[in-house]
C-alpha cells in the first residue's frame, strides 16, 4: 500500500502518522507539502493532526483551501482512501468531503486523555480488523472536537450508518457521541481520536494498530 501524509504549516502529528504507517506497512509514506500541486499516485492520503495555519479563522479553514487539497479532493472523488485524524477531520469537514463541523468543546477545555470508543462499523476499509463488540482505547487531544450537524444531517448520518466511532463517555459534547464518521462512499473517514498515538510502542494498549492494519488489508 502506498500512502501519503499531507504536511501543513502547523501539522504536528505528521511524523507520528508516518511512523505508524511505516510500522504497519513496512514502507515509509510520502510526505507531501501543502503547497504542492501534485499528489503522487497513492492508495491512501492521511491528513494529520495539529493546528494547520494556527487554526486561523476556524480550525481547518485555511488548510481546506490550500493547493494540495484540490488534489486530495480529486483523489477522494476517484475513490481513493482519505483518513483525516483530529485536525485532519476538521479539514475534511471544512472542505466539504465530510458533513458537519467540529466546534469548540462543550466544556471549553482542551481534552487530552485516552478515551474508550465503540467501533460501530467493521465493514469499512478503516476498521475491518476490529471486532464490533469490544470498545477500544485511543487517545484524544483537541480543543475543537465537538461534532455538530443539523438535526436532519444527523438523522441522515445515522440512517445511512456513517458513524464509525462513538465515544463511550462523551468528552467534548459531540452530537450523538460521534467520534468518527465516513462519507457515503466509505472511502473518506474523519475521526478526532489519534490511532497513530496508540501503536503499542509507548505503554499504550496498541489499539490503533488495527486501524492501520485495516487499511493495509485492502491492498494485500
Amino acid at each position: 500500500m502506498r500512502a501519503a501524509v499531507i504536511v501543513f504549516p502547523g501539522s504536528n502529528c505528521d511524523r507520528d502518522a508516518a511512523s505508524a504507517l511505516a510500522q504497519v506497512t513496512g514502507q515509509a509514506p510520502l510526505m507531501v507539502w501543502h503547497q504542492s500541486n501534485e499528489l503522487p499516485a497513492v492508495d491512501l492520503v492521511v491528513l494529520p493532526g495539529g493546528f494547520a495555519y494556527g487554526d486561523y479563522l476556524r480550525p481547518g479553514a485555511m488548510a481546506a483551501r490550500s493547493v494540495i487539497m484540490r488534489e486530495v479532493c480529486k483523489h477522494a472523488e476517484a475513490g481513493g482512501l482519505v483518513a483525516g485524524i483530529c485536525n485532519g477531520f476538521q479539514v475534511l469537514s471544512e472542505v466539504g468531503l465530510l458533513p458537519g463541523v467540529l466546534m469548540r468543546n462543550a466544556g471549553l477545555k482542551f481534552v487530552c486523555k485516552p478515551v474508550a470508543l465503540q467501533v460501530e462499523r467493521i465493514d469499512t476499509p478503516f476498521t475491518s480488523q476490529y471486532s464490533q463488540k469490544s470498545p477500544i482505547t485511543i487517545p484524544v487531544a483537541h480543543h475543537d472536537g465537538n461534532f455538530y450537524a443539523s438535526q436532519d444531517e444527523l438523522t441522515r448520518l445515522e440512517d445511512q450508518g456513517q458513524v464509525v466511532f462513538r465515544y463511550v463517555d462523551n468528552p467534548n459534547g459531540s452530537a450523538n457521541n460521534i467520534a468518527g464518521i465516513v462519507n457515503q462512499a466509505n472511502n473518506v473517514l474523519g475521526m478526532m481520536p489519534h490511532p497513530e498515538r496508540a501503536m503499542g510502542t509507548t505503554g499504550d494498549g496498541g489499539d490503533g494498530v488495527l486501524f492501520f492494519k485495516s487499511l493495509l488489508g485492502g491492498f494485500r
Binding site: L57, A61, R65, E94, P99, V101, M103, Y148, A149, S150
Partner: peptide
C-alpha cells in the same frame, strides 16, 4: 460563502 463563514453553523 467560500471562506469567511462556515454556513453549516
Amino acid at each position: 460563502g467560500q471562506l469567511l463563514a462556515n454556513t453549516v453553523i
